[in-house]
Design a protein around this nucleic acid. Structure first.
Lengths: 339, 339
DNA sequence: CTGTTAGCGCCTTCAT
DNA sequence: ATGAAGGCGCTAACAG
């Protein structure tokens, strides 16, 4: 059997309370006794039972993270960043992968994080009022990544501004007929970006005195295939667009494929700009809006840890995005040119 | 304060023992009393404190998973699959992302899963004897994904055979000068695939009575950039290869880029085959060896859950791989042709 | 600075 | 079929 705190106490010749204090680095322990305890603990290869500690202290030293689809690039990237921060702080990470709108519903009705985490991170979800209420019953600090809600911590980018960056880039190249391939604003998963990016797109057009043509706004569902299908529709229009803003790099990939399969060239015939700066965007020479993905994860994790240390008012942090110009919007010999 | 088992017992007019039994679906509880208990629990919105339960039972209902880099496609995919199986079985998933060889060393010396999981899944690591020993001190069922070790459960593919599939495909197309872009067999992370894929590559060549030319074996480090650099070296050879087998799709992407930047065509001048069937492989029209990624995750998770249910001898499952032929090895109009 | 003593909330024999 | 009671291994007052 593994050593318990009592074994350590016996070996060190002190009480279990002193062992507990010493091992946790609490003050009011003589340096000499602490050393004795540490030596005993090392000798017995002792580690405290987290469950006993959690039961007694009421703290779980665990943070729950809720992501729509772990296997997608963005969420995996976030997860890695959050894990790094938490594990370094001695916290456990409890992963909840929604996977579908049913999974989402299950999560918010069952609330499997109840009684087992000190804080929760919600990634990329626009919460319904019911969901907010469910989270509030937890009476825990809540962190949102890619969205915001009063009373919750949040770290995000400004999707409206970012979308404007994208469209303004196309406008600056002389395009006036600019299409949008976006996410579904009515999707059951209710991701946050689609609304804002759509808004930014339309605002940028209006600011340039262009009329918003809704027939140029298509759904790509954040997948390569969806982006391709959306582009096909756009290509079938009486007057096709000269440029496309896709709300994700993956949809942009699909759009590029559709364009090329139609025998047209990127960017000469149609310019394409994506969103994210996915790891393969450089490879495919895609102009895009880069957002700091890992950093958002680091920041939200750090904010929650800080609030766990001593309760503070929720903070809302908005990070900058950056236009990365590549060959899909500016003339280049081929897709495989500079990147 | 949230309801405790005592509250439920009081409301249902039974003892806490009966509540515990009822809620866990144990036998020897009268149907009527069970209903009473369930009703009371529902009314109080009761959920058991996992920590109290774990402390008392000695079972953690948690599985630890150790991955080299969560943010990489393969591992994220595995993670999603494992999470789905575990959460459905009522198990928590404790994620450990190594991130580097230092992270790896830290994990195996600290063993942060001690006293907090019922089983551990190790993904894609060739374990050293010290690491095996460390895991054995846990006295827990251990599952390996993408590797195997006596005494541990495992689910994997046959990398030797898979590499042969790849090379044989190139041989069948008439290639005789076939290069390899692989992972580092001396890498501190010691991934398992590089050794086996290298072996399969050489065996296939020998079986075809071709001599193995080590100058055709280059390191791509499992990244796009690495693959590109490796391909550049190969292109600089006095007699360059007519085909390349990359041990991952991402290295294959890099190779394709290098080939095209050199003004050569794929597959006319140089054929390229990858490994994995990464989600963008179809997009880039890359011939590859598909391995069942999510299924490996599902299988290893299921195996461990089964062994937790009732201890069984470790099993070793080898899943099939499949050759997926696309335009990077067989003539096609362009990279963006059929896929 | 250190020890004593209640719990934390549940599981699990052992009785009945 | 149900209840009583002793832990599980630790934390957190409270004494001293």
């Amino acid at each position: 059997m593994a050593a318990s705190i009592e074994d350590v106490a016996k070996l060190a010749g002190v009480s279990i309370a002193t062992v507990s204090r010493s091992l946790r680095g609490l003050p009011d322990v003589a340096a000499t006794t602490r050393d004795k305890v540490l030596a005993a603990a090392r000798e017995l290869d002792y580690v405290a039972s987290p469950f006993a500690a959690r039961l007694a202290s009421g703290r779980s030293s665990t943070v729950g993270i809720v992501v729509p689809f772990v296997h997608r690039w963005f969420f995996a990237e976030v997860l890695g960043a959050v894990e790094a921060v938490l594990s370094q702080a001695g916290y456990d990470l409890l992963l909840h992968n929604l996977g579908s709108s049913e999974g989402r519903e299950r999560f918010f009705t069952v609330l499997p994080v109840r009684k087992r985490v000190d804080a929760v991170i919600i990634v990329s979800l626009a919460l319904t009022e019911d969901e907010v209420e469910a989270l509030n019953t937890l009476e825990l600090p809540i962190g949102m990544l890619g969205a915001a809600h009063p009373g919750f911590f949040s770290v995000r980018i400004d999707d409206v501004t970012a979308a404007k960056q994208a469209v303004n880039h196309l406008l600056s190249l002389g395009h006036t007929r600019i299409a949008l391939i976006g996410g579904d604003t009515d999707d059951p998963m209710r991701f946050t970006p689609p609304h804002h990016r759509l808004t930014g797109y339309e605002q940028a057009l209006r600011a340039a005195d262009l009329t918003v043509d809704h027939s140029l706004e298509r759904l790509g569902y954040f997948t390569v295939e969806g982006g391709e299908a959306a582009m096909l529709e756009l290509l079938g229009l009486p007057e096709r667009p000269t440029a496309v803003f896709a709300e994700s790099d993956e949809m942009a990939y699909g759009a590029m494929r559709a364009i090329r399969r139609a025998g047209l060239r990127v960017p000469e015939d149609i310019g394409v700009i994506g969103f994210d700066d996915h790891s393969t965007a450089a490879l495919l020479d895609l102009t895009t809006i880069r957002q700091p993905v890992a950093e958002q994860g680091v920041r939200i994790a750090a904010a929650l840890l800080a609030s766990l240390h001593d309760p503070i008012e929720p903070t809302d942090l908005v990070l900058d995005t950056e236009l990365v110009i590549r060959g899909s919007t500016v003339k280049a010999a081929s897709v495989y040119a500079e990147s």
